[in-house]
């Protein structure tokens, strides 16, 4: 009846309509910004009086913009690498380990997802000021890592959960040492989870705004910080170009993760 398409009756057109509106609502900004980034008008007039690549030229040539892009890339790669290095062994403990307080430990590793980011940001800001870490690459990596780590652990943990431990046992009875079984059997089997975790970690770092705003100094900014700072002074169309770059990265990484999911099946 209500869960079968054919028998829903005319009521289903209401659902179609609302979903269509919602999809339009969800797509509007993502499609609108890249279009706007080619707008020739300095004031983002709509409809655009003409088209230009000027804003992209500015984005990729102006020292501050291109520098912030490079900083974002550097930070994101460092965060991804550290997240996987920390999350991989932790996920093994959380999935395989038998110990008291396992639920509590799980909750602890997920807690950065629950605490409002602004609180983590000001807390770290206090530390950064005290230890002179504000505006360093290190501060960016540490702060982004706090948010990326839970995602990496969950991602790796869930693929480890579905991995049948009998594979590892059969590798060991075949003569493989613990390390050999891990390297040749377990890690290749959970690779999709590791890659997904890495993609999430990268994207989280690449997109992080709140923490970055507090870690940044005028001399060291990531791309979202540069957008934020620029945004507060004017609505320069370069922001639209930079935003399109961020949207493109999301599309790319989500595409890759969808591709991995498909090949896994």
């Amino acid at each position: 009846m209500l869960l079968t398409l054919q028998r829903m009756g005319p009521g289903r057109y209401v659902l179609y309509a609302i979903t269509a509106i919602a999809v339009f609502y969800l797509l509007l900004p993502i499609v609108f910004i890249p279009i706007l980034s080619f707008n020739a008008s300095r004031w983002l007039e709509f409809p655009p009086p003409g088209w230009t690549l000027r804003w992209y030229e500015q984005l990729f040539t102006e020292e501050q913009w291109i520098g912030s892009i490079w900083n974002s890339v550097k930070v994101a790669f460092l965060v991804t690498a550290s997240a996987i290095v920390l999350a991989l062994p932790a996920a093994f403990v959380l999935v395989r380990g038998k110990f008291l307080g396992k639920t509590a430990l799980n909750a602890f590793f997920a807690s950065p997802m629950i605490v409002p980011v602004v609180i983590i940001a000001v807390a770290l800001y206090g530390f950064a000021l005290q230890w002179g870490m504000a505006g360093t690459l290190f501060a960016f990596v540490i702060s982004h890592l706090i948010l990326a780590l839970p995602f990496a652990i969950i991602s790796i943990g869930s693929s480890l959960q579905t991995f049948d431990i009998a594979y590892e046992k059969s590798a060991m009875i075949c003569g493989a040492s613990r390390v050999q079984a891990l390297l040749h059997v377990t890690l290749p089997s959970i690779r999709p989870g590791i890659i997904a975790g890495a993609l999430f970690a990268f994207l989280i770092s690449w997109d992080e705004v709140v923490l970055a705003i507090f870690m940044a100094t005028p001399s060291l900014q990531t791309l979202p910080v540069k957008i934020w700072v620029t945004l507060r002074t004017d609505l320069s169309p370069v922001i639209a170009a930079a935003s399109s770059l961020l949207i493109g990265m999301s599309v790319l990484l989500l595409g890759i993760s969808a591709l991995i999911k498909r090949t896994r099946k």
């Binding site: 509007l28 609108f32 004031w43 983002l44 961020l246």
Partner: peptide, 30 residues
Amino acid sequence: MVFAVILLSMWTNLLVRTYAWLVLLQDTGA
């Protein structure tokens, strides 16, 4: 397909989405 749109919106930069609405909603906006 609808899921893809939802996920894309979810994983698009927060600042970018907010900026888009700023531009869309302003007095001279679309």
